[in-house]
């Protein structure tokens, strides 16, 4: 069920979705969004790619395996909790860098909760893609 229109649109849509999902993850701390939504969005992008160009293409475009995404996400989330331990605080207590400004993005806050949210983002995306790819491959067999 290859469609040229779908293939062409996906070519532009996928990168846009990836950037959008990252942005949504980042802005989740102050506005609607966050790791869960970002992760689901990222997987939607690759699901679209898989439907239009086939699973192998989508897997290739992802560059890393979904399992790797899950493992890395869990590790990142775990690591985000560790700095607090150094400062004799409870595990996963949030720590923040001083505020600074960037053009385009405005005031930037960086802290461990953002890192944690990125871990959530990767795990959710990895899980969804894992399920999706597995089902697709079964169907193709």
């Amino acid at each position: 069920m290859k469609s040229i229109i779908l293939t062409q649109t996906t070519k532009f849509l996928t990168p846009a979705f990836v950037i959008l999902s990252l942005f949504i993850t980042y802005r989740g701390h102050n506005l609607p969004g966050g790791g869960f939504i970002g992760g689901l969005m990222l997987s939607t992008a690759f699901a679209l790619l898989a439907v239009s160009d086939g699973v192998e293409k989508a897997r290739h475009a992802l560059r890393v395996s979904p399992e790797f995404l899950i493992a890395a996400g869990l590790c990142i989330a775990l690591i985000s909790g560790l700095p607090a331990l150094l400062g004799d605080d409870a595990f996963m207590k949030s720590l923040w860098l001083p505020e600074f400004s960037l053009p385009l993005l405005g005031k930037i806050h960086l802290g461990t909760p953002i890192v944690f949210d990125i871990g959530v983002f990767m795990t959710v995306a990895g899980f969804t893609l894992k399920v999706f790819f597995s089902l697709c491959r079964e169907e193709e067999n």
């Binding site: 989740g28 701390h29 102050n30 966050g34 979904p66 909760p113």
Partner: peptide, 29 residues
């Protein structure tokens, strides 16, 4: 330092619970 309280609860106040949840997702995968 977050204005979206729902997200703050998830990633800061109750981050450990969320961590548990993504572990569950990992196990499901």
């Amino acid at each position: 330092k977050g204005k979206n309280v729902v997200n703050v609860i998830l990633v800061d106040f109750r981050a450990l619970d969320t961590f548990g949840e993504i572990i569950v997702l990992g196990i499901a995968a």
